[in-house]
Measured scan of single mutants.
Amino acid sequence: TTYKLILNGKTLKGETTTEAVDAETAERVFKEYAKKNGVDGEWTYDDATKTFTSTE
Rank of each mutant, 00 (worst) to 15 (best):
26 A>D: 01
39 V>M: 09
15 E>Q: 10
36 K>G: 06
10 K>V: 14
25 T>G: 06
26 A>Y: 00
31 K>D: 02
36 K>E: 12
20 A>W: 02
40 D>K: 10
37 N>R: 12
52 F>T: 00
12 L>R: 06
56 E>F: 07
28 R>G: 08
24 E>G: 08
13 K>S: 10
1 T>I: 14
42 E>T: 14
5 L>D: 02
11 T>I: 11
56 E>H: 06
25 T>Q: 13
11 T>A: 11
22 D>Q: 02
6 I>M: 06
10 K>Q: 12
17 T>V: 08
1 T>L: 08
35 K>G: 05
48 A>S: 12
55 T>P: 03
41 G>M: 05
30 F>L: 07
47 D>C: 07
32 E>I: 08
55 T>Y: 09
33 Y>D: 01
53 T>I: 09
44 T>S: 13
56 E>L: 06
41 G>W: 15
17 T>G: 03
53 T>F: 11
2 T>S: 09
20 A>D: 02
8 N>Y: 11
23 A>R: 14
45 Y>D: 00
15 E>F: 14
46 D>W: 03
49 T>M: 07
28 R>L: 10
31 K>T: 04
30 F>D: 00
23 A>E: 07
49 T>K: 06
6 I>V: 11
22 D>K: 03
25 T>R: 06
25 T>F: 07
21 V>T: 12
38 G>N: 10
27 E>C: 14
20 A>F: 05
8 N>G: 04
9 G>T: 09
15 E>D: 06
7 L>Y: 11
25 T>W: 07
47 D>N: 09
4 K>H: 13
1 T>H: 13
37 N>W: 14
36 K>A: 14
15 E>T: 13
4 K>Q: 04
11 T>C: 15
16 T>N: 04
27 E>F: 15
9 G>D: 03
6 I>L: 06
54 S>N: 11
44 T>W: 08
56 E>G: 05
6 I>F: 06
8 N>A: 09
43 W>S: 01
4 K>D: 02
20 A>C: 09
33 Y>Q: 02
27 E>P: 00
16 T>Y: 15
26 A>E: 00
53 T>Q: 07
36 K>D: 12
4 K>R: 12
42 E>W: 11
12 L>N: 08
6 I>E: 04
30 F>N: 00
13 K>D: 05
44 T>V: 10
37 N>M: 15
43 W>D: 00
32 E>N: 06
34 A>S: 06
43 W>L: 08
3 Y>G: 02
32 E>H: 06
53 T>M: 11
49 T>W: 03
10 K>P: 12
28 R>D: 05
51 T>S: 03
22 D>H: 03
41 G>D: 04
4 K>V: 09
30 F>W: 02
25 T>P: 00
5 L>A: 03
13 K>N: 09
11 T>E: 11
7 L>T: 04
47 D>M: 09
30 F>I: 00
48 A>C: 11
49 T>Y: 04
50 K>F: 08
29 V>G: 04
47 D>P: 14
41 G>E: 04
